[in-house]
Amino acid sequence: MERAAVSVDDLSKHFGSLVALDRLTFEVRPGEVFGLLGPNGAGKTTVMRILTTILHPSAGRAEVLGHDVVREAGEVRRLIGLAGQYAAVDPNLTGRENLRLIGRLSRLARSRIRPRASALLHRFDLTAAADRPVRTYSGGMRRRLDVAAALVAEPPLLFLDEPTSGLDPQSRNALWELIRELVSDGTTVLLTTQYLEEADRLAERVVVVDQGRLIADDTPAALKARLGNTVIELDMGERGRAVRAAATIEGRLGETTEMDGSRLRLPCRNAFAVLRGILNLLEADGHVPRNVTVRESSLDDVFLALTGHRTRAGPGAGPATRGGTE
């Protein structure tokens, strides 16, 4: 069997009495994009900081490409690239100088640093701004430079901590495109996100983390299928009607519903039959819904089903509509 790119075994981290990570176990396969999904404060960044040797675990162990992150931290640092959710580049240096600094500190041969910096600036569409101080860059440009900086040493394993939080849709799409290109090069990517859409679009496998605990480990498709791949939403117009309708549906059809204000949600497998049953039932009761939506279930629905609460920003909102830091 091929060696795991990242192997996390029973990993815990305590900060005083706060349990940030609670016995996490998962594996990342070489060459895949692996998503670490969870809301703010779930522990995603703590995992990243342990895997990139910045933090020590309190218990359990973690290996990166076969090297223990505590005992062989130096070896691990040679093999990884990190782009944080804060654009960790020096605002007073130019884009080119930033990349060259990282090149020198990554111990690249001097003759390779210049061409490598130029190539990355070109690839990340920063050539025109390459010799301007980074403090004049837009948020999207900084973020691209940050990812470029993580790639200077051509690491076989790349850590992206909330790579697109706070970016506009165009910059986000551009960055997603770049990440997909990287993967086709063979780079393994471990990314954290609180945007379900992002995990859905990029990751081949995800683990869902909530309050430091692992609550799911699967492909996005399988997670959605586990729940039922269709969601019916009924807008009853007001909360009282929604409560009565929920009681009717659960009592007579045995389908579980989730209520959100005047709206009812039903994850299900055979949407057509269920919907026909519901509408007949409600019509007979004189409670016709104001609006009916049938859609494919999103990871948001999955998250709600797994944790019992929504991701903080609620359903449907895209990454661009919120700025997120953890």
């Binding site: 020198r104 111990r107 041969a109 076989p156 063979g186």
Partner: peptide
């Protein structure tokens, strides 16, 4: 640009000693 990222990264150079590493990285 194509990258070959399956094996080793580019950072192959290792300074001869801890002091050499400190001088080199510190000056950067």
């Amino acid at each position: 640009m194509t990258t070959t990222t399956t094996g080793r990264p580019l950072s192959a150079e290792r300074p001869s000693s801890r002091i050499a590493a400190t001088v080199r990285d510190g000056s950067a």
